[in-house]
Design a protein around this nucleic acid. Structure first.
Lengths: 210, 210
DNA sequence: CCCGCACCGTGACATTTGTCAGGGCCGTCC
DNA sequence: GGACGGCCCTGACAAATGTCACGGTGCGGG
């Protein structure tokens, strides 16, 4: 508590309580870091950040309530002084780009060595950007989503695994139109199936928004 | 190092280095626990356990090389003195049953509070069993897999997302047989699609073994 | 022994899915 | 204004998928 007045204040957001607590333990070992808040849902990030005024927020992408990308945007708007470091399980190429566009300062996958996390936090706090180099290359290669807005929506709905008729009803579209969008999506993703297209799009992080 | 000779020796296995390190930090805060080994792959568990002789092994289910269930069985056979606590992301009903059958002493999901982990470790070390009560109920409800061995195999292969012809070639079966197995699986899972059936089976942990 | 059951295969069938060629409605940009 | 492109729809077609009925093989239990 009285270690010094200059500690970097951290907010942790991760839906898995165990991981959250473990990260807190890991980061608290550092002299210059202190965890001032922990939340388990994306929509709790902004309220909690308003209350505890952290310097850096570590956000997971997969969270209930609000995904980490949307939470990033909301947090940047509500508490501009707080920088964001996205820490995620999956190195989906699209995630990185979306996170950066939303205003994140850094992006780290969960299979990077534990030692590097504290450094990443310090760099972000210092105003630098932190990006996994391997992932950056993939992101450039994968580029932005080739899918149109409607195609994305159809594909996202199709994730639930219903028939074309179901999708048409859910989206208030004609069956033919749904088929057309799916066909276009299958072509653009280079897939052979609807299921295949969903997998490809998901892996690239093209099914996130909204 | 010299806190006392009676510390519980732990082995951690998780494919995400960050989580692994964080768990190590969390558990090392406890006076009576010490982490003696960390691995990132399932097939490294037994060799490492032979070398470091841990009292308790914390294994993730999702791991490259060898999944946590198979690693549990192998570890129990190779190093009977070491008890196993499975720590996993997904509370799939089938995972719990399979883990227990493989000889695990405990099963914890990653969104349990961090404080409880150390207690779970101590209980397991003391010879008790630790099971998430909510999950136990679900497991009883979901029961064992209704799928026959072949159906499971076909469904597992179908996950890759190929056509029936592809599956037939990969499994050395006739197309008609593959269709029959898929049809049976769809019926038994109460699904309407092949993709749907895969999702249901996956959620229940029926696609694990082998 | 006989029955049930998992398993493999065949063939035929209805349904679903994916593709293609159209056409019309709107915006934006040149 | 005209071209372009996203979006919606139609209708028709081929291919893949799911279902059904059937026969044949082993294996284990009553």
């Amino acid at each position: 508590m009285s270690g010094g007045p200059e500690r970097i204040r951290l907010l942790l957001a991760d839906d898995q309580a165990l991981v959250r607590g473990a990260l807190a333990a890991l980061l608290s070992l550092e002299e210059d870091l202190t965890v001032v808040a922990e939340v388990g849902r994306g929509d709790e990030v902004v309220p909690e950040a308003r209350r505890s005024a952290p310097d850096v927020a570590l956000l997971d992408v997969e969270m209930p309530g609000l995904d980490g990308i949307a939470a990033t945007a909301a947090l940047r708007a509500a508490v501009p002084a707080c920088r964001v470091l996205v820490v995620t399980t999956f190195g989906r190429p699209g995630y990185l780009r979306r996170a950066m566009e939303a205003g994140a300062s850094g992006f780290v996958v969960k299979d990077t060595p534990a030692r590097q996390l504290a450094d990443a936090v310090r760099r972000v706090h210092a105003g630098l950007r932190v990006v996994d180099p391997t992932l950056a290359a993939e992101t450039l290669a994968a580029g932005t989503s080739p899918l149109t807005e409607r195609e994305t929506e159809v594909l996202r709905t199709a994730r639930g695994g219903g028939t074309v008729a179901d999708l048409a009803r859910a989206l208030h579209l004609s069956e033919g139109t749904v088929r057309n969008h799916l066909s276009a999506a299958i072509g653009k993703t280079g897939a052979r199936n609807r299921a295949d297209a969903i997998r490809v799009a998901e892996r690239n992080g093209w099914l996130l928004g909204e």
